[in-house]
Each structure stands twice: as C-alpha cells, then as structure tokens.
Design a protein around this nucleic acid. Structure first.
Length: 837
RNA sequence: GCGGACGUGGCGAAAUCGGUAGACGCAGCGGACUUAAAAUCCGCCUUCCCCUGGAAUUGCGGGUUCAAGUCCCGCCGUCCGCACCA
C-alpha cells in the first residue's frame, strides 16, 4: 500500500486549524523583531488569476519563513474595491456596484483561503466600505487644510453620450471606448493634489531606495522628468509688440539660436491666425496630426513663418524669425522654444527644411569645431562663436548666461518638472465621495470631520447616463456647514489610486475613530518587502510615496518612504493554440497525439503559437480553482516557485504542474521513512543538510525561490539514497521544516505524522552548525594551460605545495605534460592548480 | 530616437570574488516491477570525433588574464518602459 498524500482533505483540515488558532494574527505589542510582508492587494474582479497565485505564494513563503526565524510578521490582505468595472457591471447586469463587489470579494476570499496563505485575516479591509473611505475623507480634509489640495479648471475627455469623463486610455481614435461617440475636450473644475510640491524630494528619495529594482527607479525618474534651465523673454521687433517667453535647458548655446518656435495653441499663434487664413490652416493641420507613438516618430517637422521677429537678448540688432511649429508642445515649459539647430536634432531638422542658419557654438574636447551636417552635437565641450562665453565649458556657460539674464532682468534660472499635479476628481459613483460642500456664498467648504464618513447613497440607478450621485434626488442637497444656507455636496469621487495610496498604513493600525495610530504604524512601517506587478511601477508607487510624504509633511508620520524593499514579479505565461480556422483554443480543448497537437473533439491539427501572457482573448488561461481541485494547494504553490526566477515570466505547463504534484507525493513518502531504531551519524548527509538549511535561508531572503526549490530537490535526492541512520531521520524531520513555507499543508501533515504536537507553522527554522558548512574533502581541478585535464580529491585546506605535487602526479596531467616542465604554476587553494608550459 | 533589462542543451534554468559550464527540474530514450496500464524505482541525456581519450561549445567579432558565461571594446537579436519634454 503506497503512502499517498490526500491534499483535498489535508488542505481543508489545516486551513481550519490555522484559522481556529489564529496562527497568523500579527501582534502589535510583541517584542520580537517585526517584519511587514505585503503583496499588492487585488481588484475584486470576481476570480483569482494565476498571476495572483504566483504573487501571493512568493509573499507567503517569505512571511512564513520570517515567522519561523523568530519575527512577528504582518502579512495582511484586502481589496482595492472601488472603480469602474463595478459600474460597468451595474449597467450591463443591473446589479448594484456594492453588491457585485462584495460578492466578488467573498468568492475571491474563499479562493485565496484555499491556497492556505499565512494571512492575518482579522485585518482584512475593502476600500469601498465607509469604515475605510471615511478615514480617507478625513485625510483629504487634512491635506486640504495643509494646502496640499486645490481646485483648478482643467481640460478633460468628455463622452457626450455617456456623460462622463474618460481616462486617456479609454479614448480610442478620438472616440469613447464604450459609446463610440467623438470625445470632446471640456473644461471642468477639478480637485488636484500637489504632488509637484514634492517633485524634487520624490526624485531625491529614489536614490535611497536601494532595495528597489533599478528599472522602477529609472521609470519614476523619467516620469518626474526634472530639467534645469533658463526661462527668458525675447523682446519683439516692431511692428510686433509681444514678448515671447521661452524655456531652455541649454542657455549656453544662446549664440547658436537661429529662430524661435511656438506651439500651435500658443496665444501668439492664435493672434496671428486671427487675421491669416494660411496660419489658421497650418494650426488646424497641427491639431489633426496623430498622437500615437509611431505617428509622432515619423512626423515631419513642420513650421509656419509668422513674419514676426524678435531680438536676441545679447544683441538688439540680431533678429530671429518666429515660427509656429508642430513639434512644440503648449503644456511643457512655456509653449515656446529657442531653436539652436547645431545642438538639437529637432531644431536641426527644422532648420534644414526652412533653410535657417546652423552655427556651431560647442566644440567637442580635443576637436576643432567641425561643421554640423545631419547630426546635431549634444555632447560636452568648449563654447565657440559665443562672444563672452568663448572658451567656457557647457556647464560654466549655462551658469554665466543665467547670471547675466538675472542681472539684466530678462530671465531667470528655473527648474521644470514633467510631473503634473495629481487630478483626483472622477465623475463617478463608485468611489470615495470628496468631502466638500459647495455654497453659493461661502464657496467650497470642507465637511466638518464630525460628519464623516460621507456615505454613498444606496438607492441609485444606472439606467441613464451620467453620474448617479449628481442626479440623486436628495443626497447632494445639504446645508452649508459655514453659513447654514442651502448648498450642494461635491458629487465627484476620488481617483481609486487614492485608496491604494495608504491601505498599507491602515493594515498596520485600524482605530475606529481615526485613520491610524501613529505609534502603532511606526512599529510596522515602512513595509520591508512589497511584492507586485511591474505595471504599477509608476503611478501607484509614486502616489503612495507622495501620500506618505504628505502625511509626514503634516506631522502625522515620521517617515517619507512607504516601501523599503520592492520586488516586481514576472507574469505567468502559457502556450497559445489556434484551430485550422484560426480561432484561439483553450488548453483543455487540445491534446497531444504522438508528436502533434490536435483538437480534442474533432482531431483537427492545432497550430501551437508563442508562449504569451495569459489572457482571456487568447484563451490561454488556466483557472486556479481547477488546478487546486486537481492537485491541491501545495503542488500549485510549489510550481509557482519552481524553475523560473521570480522576476522573470513563468511558463505554465501541464507537465510542470504534474511534476510538482509528483514531488509533493515523493516528499510525503519520504516523510514516512523515519526508522525508530536507526542509529549512527552519516557525516556527508549531515553536511548536505546543514548546507541546504543555510542556502535556503539565504535564497528565501533574496526571494530566489527557484534556487531554494532546487536545493530541496538535491537534499531529497541525497536523503533517498542514504542508508537508515539517526542522521537520516534528522534530515527527514528537517526537510519538513524546510518545505514548510512553500508547501505548508504537506508539512503540517508530515509534522503531525511524525508525532509532533505543535504546529509546524509555529516551529522554529532549523539551526545551522557552521562546522558542517565546509566539506572536509574537496575536489581540485588540475588544469594545463587553463584546460581541465584531471581532478584530485584532497582534504580541505591542503597546503599549496602539496596540491602542486599531487597535481603534477595526476595521471592525465603527466600524460599531457609528456615530460615538459611547467614554467609557472598557479595554485588556488581548495579550487584548482593550473600549470603553464 | 532615448532609457533599461536580457541572450547558456530540445525546454525552464544554475554557476558567491574571474577558478571543474550545464546543478536542479521538465520533456525524451532505455531498463525493472506489472497479465496490462498508472504510480514507483534504476540508468542515459550539449554536440562532434580517430571514444581507457580528444575537440568544440554560454548570440557574433575582438581584447585583457595563467584562467572569461562572468571584466573591457565593437556588433547582432529579443523584450520592457518612455517618447517631438525644449
């Protein structure tokens, strides 16, 4: 009778035990070292995706491992529960967004529980509950009071059919993604958070985040987009009468300027167009130009000569033409630039087309000033043809021009950021209501904190377009808190990125009467290890960093960075299949027949496509529920951690999960092999065990789960081959502890089977005997001219001259040397001997 | 175009500081057990050759070194991010 692990029975039983004993409840008062392990909380779409399983399996291994190594671990879970899909579902399925969301949460919670994650469920939260968003409203009011929130007119994408604002990615070819109606630009009064106030600090802070992937830091750096330069004014040459303000990061090249270019929607361009049909036509042309990446790349630099001229700041007799140009953007800098063709590629392309002067003003070091042809020179060098700047470096030249401009009053040094303030107004129902009341006489008035939370009304409808809050018969009508007259509530709700900007703080501390308790939060935060998808590299992580800074700025928290360690895991991928007709096929609709893949029902040949991210449209998805039902949670978790490095994509394969399932059973058989009477030490096995304990601990801390998995296999192989002994029994017991973070149900089952009374989840990580980490015999490579010719086995620490002697005597070395005497002998102790002839 | 990451067997990969390339897993092949299958166990598994051994081999071409997957220079390719940012 074979010992076979019954996962369905064991999974449920141990999950019940952990639940009942509250094994993973984090104590705020423990004096153990603390460890906050967090994975990005999911949007409750209704089903857990295999990518979630990978994400949470990784975090769970770390959380369980840290518990075993004596940490008090906070490993919580919650729901990013506001957002559009709930409203879409409401429109399509006539179900209330709250009902839809809450039932999705219930489903997904059950799915997650089936995976046996070591989560403190007592801290579970959903951002759509007043108990959460009410506190968010309080934080919003704090920010308002601290001057971090303001209201501004801003252009939005307006869908006139759905009567709603669309995000940029919801506008496809200028049309609303749902209604298909042409999208209008509308000016709306919107709420903004002053993220730009922290722009420099957010940029500087990146330098200290050395446990973040460089990739993410670079992406944030580019997003913040700091540039340092000179903002200055060109004086008009009569009859023209307006100054043109431009921004340049290269004021040092000012003597190479040959034109000024303004954006098509620049006020001066508008003035010119007022009496000029040609200019009007050109501006229209600029606007209809595509905005996609490919179009922009190939778009020709086009300009329209306004006939106007301005004077060079250093020479009133030097006149520069003013062009309207399609490559100048109104919303960056001042919407106008000085064109220096020799040192900017776009300006050069433009100058060649309109036959403008190209004069080199920077000479590369050690190089005479060669004329510029098709390529602008943007490198460092000395300034030439630049009057008082001649001979200066680029850096000195910048400083000198800025100093002169400031001294003479026509310009000033200025730092510009690409980062914009964060517009948080959404004209939607399913979000956090913005706690402000608009009063005709008092203006926008903050809701008194005592009146929070402002709860979303339940009785709403989605049968007509527009925001249900706005058309609700009573909800928005309130008295002004300031003057008492009739007023209306703000009907916009907050961007859902606001909800995810502080949930990790609320996890640490959940008082009823305020957002969090500072002292408790500071015990847990910053989050030591945050794990999630790279798709959140910019927005979510930047907003959370801002929000934390805002709290610090307001004196509510004592730290600026919310996440010390960040890890971005790869996607789960799967082969794709297509029928002869070209339709995508699901994995369960195809089967292997000999060397080819065919359709299950018709037997028609299937084309196997590339391995791609799992997506519903390509049907290459597997459902975690099905897999768990078939193999149990542990086999799935094991597979998620095996083979591929966690930052890389993981190809899901049927044979891979089969292999994991086989190994789970192999471990289970092994756990039953403790022999009561076995005695004696097995030194090599002891060594292997202790090296494995040490190695796995390091691998898990480095999140190199694939390497930890490989070491488990090696140890299991070694234990299987070993003869019964006390050492072997010890190794089997230790193996259960080593796999406990990865396959916890199996480990608990084995632990109980071994007669242990406590939970393995509470057991300490096995201790390492440092004496056993080194082998007492080592294999030395014997090389001749760097080529391996033989190996010798010697005691660890054998002296150099002894190694040299033994290597020279090795049979294959003797044969290759053929009597020759080595000119030089390199000996690396415990490693190799290399003979040079 | 700019920035970043990566490139190792049929596949996923490993290789601490430059020191025996391919650990470990998957697939495959051969065998044992079985009436048979599944499960399990044992063995083989980079390529080539004149096979007790030898040669080549970490995308390609150079270089440094006693020694290069690892360091340097130049190409090629794949993926990701940003993008007319002045």
């Amino acid at each position: 009778m074979q010992r076979r692990f019954n996962p369905l029975e064991a999974d449920a039983r141990w999950q019940g035990v952990w639940d009942e004993k509250q094994s993973f409840k984090a104590s705020d008062t423990s004096d153990k070292p603390r460890s906050y392990v967090l994975e990005m909380f999911p949007y409750p779409s209704g089903r857990i995706h295999i990518g979630h399983v990978r994400n949470y399996s990784m975090g769970d291994v770390l959380a369980r491992f840290r518990r075993m190594t004596g940490h008090e671990v906070l490993h919580p879970m919650g729901w990013d529960a506001f957002g559009m899909p709930a409203e879409n579902a409401a429109m399509e399925k006539k179900v209330h967004p709250g009902e839809w969301t809450r039932s999705n949460i219930a489903n997904m919670r059950a799915q997650l529980k089936k995976l046996g994650f070591a989560i403190d469920w007592s801290r579970e939260l959903a951002t759509c509950e007043p108990d959460y968003y009410g506190h968010e409203q309080a934080l919003f009011l704090d920010m308002l009071e601290a001057g971090l929130v303001y209201r501004k007119e801003s252009a939005v994408n307006w869908d006139p059919v759905d009567m709603t604002v669309l995000a940029n990615e919801q506008v496809i070819d200028g049309k609303g993604w749902r209604s298909g109606a042409p999208v209008e630009k509308r000016k709306l009064s919107q709420w903004f958070l002053k993220i730009t106030q922290f722009a420099d600090d957010l940029l500087e802070g990146l330098k200290g985040l050395d446990q973040w992937p460089d990739k993410v830091r670079t992406m944030q750096e580019n997003w913040i987009g700091k540039s340092v330069g000179l903002q200055f004014r060109f004086k008009p040459v009569a009859p023209f009468d307006s100054e043109i303000e431009v921004y340049s990061t290269r004021p040092d090249t000012i003597f190479g300027a040959s034109f000024v270019a303004i954006a098509a929607d620049h006020p001066i361009a508008q003035q010119v167009a007022a009496g000029n049909a040609e200019a009007q036509a050109f501006i229209a042309l600029c606007k209809e130009g595509g905005t996609t990446a490919a179009e922009l790349e190939t778009a020709e630099k086009l300009g329209f000569d306004t006939g106007l001229t301005v004077a060079h700041p250093f020479d009133p007799d030097w006149h520069l033409p003013v062009f309207i140009a399609n490559f100048v953007l109104m919303d960056y800098g001042t919407g106008a630039v000085m064109g220096v063709p020799a040192h900017d590629q776009r300006d050069l392309d433009f100058a060649r087309k309109y036959m403008l002067a190209v004069e080199r003003v920077v000479a590369a070091d050690g190089d005479e000033a060669k004329p510029i042809h098709d390529e602008a020179y943007v490198g460092p060098g000395r300034l030439v043809n630049s009057r008082f700047l001649d001979g200066m470096s680029v850096e000195d030249g910048k400083a000198a021009v800025i100093a002169r401009a400031q001294g003479e009053g026509w310009g000033e040094g200025k730092t510009v950021f690409r980062l914009r303030d964060w517009g948080v107004s959404r004209q939607r129902y399913w979000g956090t209501p913005i706690p402000v009341i608009h009063c005709e006489s008092c203006g926008p008035v903050p809701v008194p904190k005592a009146q929070l939370p402002i709860v979303l009304p339940e009785d709403i409808t989605f049968d007509v377009p527009g925001n249900p809050l706005d058309r609700h018969p009573t909800w928005k009508h309130v008295d002004c808190p300031s003057c008492g007259k009739a007023a209306v509530r703000e009907t916009d709700t907050l961007d859902t990125f606001a909800d995810s900007s502080w949930y990790f703080i609320r996890f640490a501390s959940q008082p009823k009467d305020r957002p969090f308790d500072r002292e408790t939060v500071e015990k847990w935060l910053p989050v030591g290890q945050y794990i999630g998808g790279v798709e959140h590299a910019i927005l979510h992580l930047l907003y959370a960093r801002f929000w934390t800074r805002a709290l610090q700025h307001m004196g509510q928290l004592g730290f600026a960075e919310p996440f010390t360690g960040l890890f971005t895991q790869g996607m789960v991928t799967h082969e794709t299949y297509k029928s002869p007709e070209g339709a995508w096929l699901a994995p369960q609709d195809v089967e292997k027949q000999g060397d080819s893949i065919v359709m299950v029902d018709t037997g028609a040949p299937v084309t196997v496509g590339r391995v791609e991210k799992m997506s519903k449209s390509k049907k290459n998805v597997v459902d975690p529920d099905d897999i768990i039902a078939q193999y149990g949670a542990d086999a799935v978790r094991w597979f998620m951690l095996s083979d591929s490095p966690p930052e890389r994509d993981l190809p899901w394969t049927e044979s891979g999960i089969e292999g994991s399932w086989r190994f789970v059973n192999r471990l289970w058989r092994l756990f039953g092999q403790i022999e009561a009477g076995a005695e004696g030490a097995d030194k090599p096995l002891d060594r292997k065990l202790h090296q494995t304990i040490d190695g796995i601990a390091k691998d898990i801390e480095a999140l190199s789960f694939n390497k930890a998995v490989a070491k488990i296999y090696e140890l299991a192989n070694a234990v299987e081959k070993a003869a019964p002994s006390a050492s072997r029994n010890g190794a089997i017991r230790a193996l259960a502890l080593l796999v406990a973070p990865m396959t916890p149900h199996l480990a608990e089952e084995a632990w109980a089977d071994m007669g242990e009374t406590g939970l393995i989840a509470d057991a300490p990580w096995p201790t390492v005997d440092p004496a056993l980490l080194v082998d007492d015999e080592v294999t030395i490579a014997c090389q001749v001219m760097g080529k391996l010719r033989d190996t010798i086995t010697v005691p660890n620490g054998t002296a150099k001259d002894e190694l040299e002697r033994l290597a020279l005597a090795a049979p294959n070395v003797v044969r290759i040397l053929d009597g020759a005497t080595p000119k030089k002998i390199i000996v690396v102790p415990d490693r190799l001997v290399n003979l040079v002839i």
